[in-house]
Design a protein around this nucleic acid. Structure first.
Lengths: 326, 326
DNA sequence: ACCTTATGTGTAACCGGTTACACACTAACC
DNA sequence: GGTTAGTGTGTAACCGGTTACACATAAGGT
């Protein structure tokens, strides 16, 4: 790999001049610039980010911490973040935390050790972590909220209400609300929204708690649901994965969808439109959330003034075939 | 952030000694070690990776280049890679190439600029890129093969044969083979495998070409398929996404699955077991492939001897409900 | 007692960039 | 003509680690 010194001696100038050409700052004569450009071209030189980062004490890297990229909701977020940051010339350091504080701390540490200029985190542990508060780095929370940090998220409370309202309006009489894992904040928001709405109606409802969102466990929750509440005619699932599992269990039990049981999911992951019947759900604009989080972070990095540090994106009812028409 | 100098003066020793303690090399007196440890603790010191990386000319970063993390096949790969590299103390720089050469080159460049110690790439452009050959970095191809580079992949040819064999044995008489995008090598392998097998039988088959794997387009291919070949009774889909789309289109047309039409997918993405009826498919062990690719890369980085530089993982028939029993 | 080897520690060069500062030259102004 | 501002370039310090090398001391062998 050619270094700036090689370029300098090839062009017959000093390293300072090469650096000035590279960064387009300070005075450089037209003739000199041309020589330097030529040398760069000839040597196929590309500056070493690490050296630059060391002196400037900041890299062009951004840390992205997600619970688990394997959960179909997160790739969309990640892609949104990636597209936005890469357009601004940044790159991503990626970590999966598995909602595990130790992993989270490890990643934060390596982000700092690598001089990242900012970080985006979908964590539930902000408050517990003094690391976040000691971090003097721009931080944007994604899909999660707190009072104290910039955040981009969708309105979970409203989403929950919307899901409940939809089922009620479509005539469900005995609704089961699935409660997602207690430590996952957005799951609690949507749950609260649903219960809030249902409490204001005279529809019967029951609550079923779950402790994970994984594919593997979803089937179990579905079986448990119909075993415990066999006459349920409306299910508000904690997310689409669970929703799809419930849908299949209902079909397996010979129930007609949506005549006997209506089901509404949450997230609108890409494959929800591919279930059969296609799953009705509350859409969170994941890709857009990723982009906005990245855009917000970049503004914070650039220390722009008058920034909206919390961005709440709207949720939306996606009516497919697991809820009744009309 | 505390630096090594701060630690040195806090402990009353030189920076060299601190460095020796940190890296556990060279001689350090027991007493001195204790003082240094104390100072590190007290200052909450954590070494700057960037400085280390500059001198050593290698970081602890590994570049991972994928076509699109949003495609449900890749998160599994990515997660496998991440788990394996992070256990070995490395971190991931992530890029989405969209199968686009320019993006690919850009990422490779930033990987190099950031002194990555190795890279894993799921690319179809190895041969075209002189960048790959000029790269004097350990490189492992993932999910793609070439003669010239270490690679971890599943046996696509065999997978294709297996898919075809399954449909034939289950009694399909008029099979349609979907051909994936021409530039995606593994898609061509499985296609070739299927055609190879079918050519050796007296079953009728037709070929339908597709140019993408995206959710959005899949529905269109499905419609086109049944419009063009309405009496098809067996479909070998180019991947699971397309397979699920075909499944739904068949159901929409009132066909019975698997009585009227049998369908077999490819990949076994997590959501395939959640389709209804559950999709029969050829499983590629994506997570395991990710892990193995990372493990191989790490061996290359450590310059271990006698390494198997091409790892072919087995594919497997996952028989669910879109193929006939027995 | 003398030489060798093992142990322990510090000094300073080095990695490859960036930039403060010094210096030289030109043009413009009064 | 001398002062001043603007332009162009080089020297060297600096970022925060790692390590070659020098040096000192202690222990062991003959």
């Amino acid at each position: 790999m050619a270094t700036i010194k090689d370029v300098a001696s090839e062009a017959g100038v000093s390293v300072a001049t090469v650096s000035r050409v590279l960064n387009d700052n300070g005075y450089v004569g037209a003739e000199t610039r041309k020589k330097v450009m030529g040398a760069i071209e000839k040597l196929n030189y590309s500056p070493n980010e690490v050296a630059r980062s060391l002196y400037k004490r900041e890299s062009r890297l951004i840390g992205l911490l997600l619970p688990d990229i394997t959960n179909p909701y997160f790739p969309q977020l990640a892609r949104g973040v990636e597209d936005e940051v890469s357009e601004a010339g940044f790159r991503l350091l990626l970590g999966n935390s598995d909602e595990n504080i130790q992993k989270e701390l490890d990643y934060i540490q390596t982000f700092v050790q690598n001089n990242v200029v900012g970080m985006i985190s979908a964590t539930n542990h902000v408050e517990h972590d003094q690391l976040y508060s000691e971090l003097n780095l721009p931080l944007v929370l994604l899909d999660r909220t707190t009072e104290n940090y910039p955040a981009v998220y969708a309105d979970g409370r409203k989403g929950g209400r919307l899901a409940a309202k939809t089922l009620v309006e479509k005539g469900a009489k005995r609704i089961t609300v699935m409660k997602g894992p207690a430590h996952v904040k957005p799951a609690q928001d949507r749950f609260r929204g649903a219960v809030e709405y249902l409490s204001g109606t005279d529809v019967d409802f029951t609550v079923m708690s779950t402790t994970s969102f994984s594919f593997e466990d979803a089937k179990g929750w579905a079986e448990e649901l119909f075993a415990t509440y066999p006459d349920t005619d409306g299910v508000i699932a904690s997310n689409d994965i669970v929703g799809i599992a419930i849908l299949h269990e209902a079909l397996r039990l010979g129930k007609k969808i949506p005549e006997d049981v209506q089901i509404i999911g949450y997230d609108d992951i890409p494959q929800s439109s591919l279930s059969y019947p296609a799953l009705s759900t509350i859409r969170q604009p994941a890709y857009e959330m990723g982009r906005q989080a990245a855009a917000l972070l970049i503004k914070l990095i650039k220390k722009e003034k008058d920034i909206d540090t919390t961005v709440q994106l709207p949720v939306e009812l996606i009516q497919r075939n697991t809820t009744r028409k009309g």
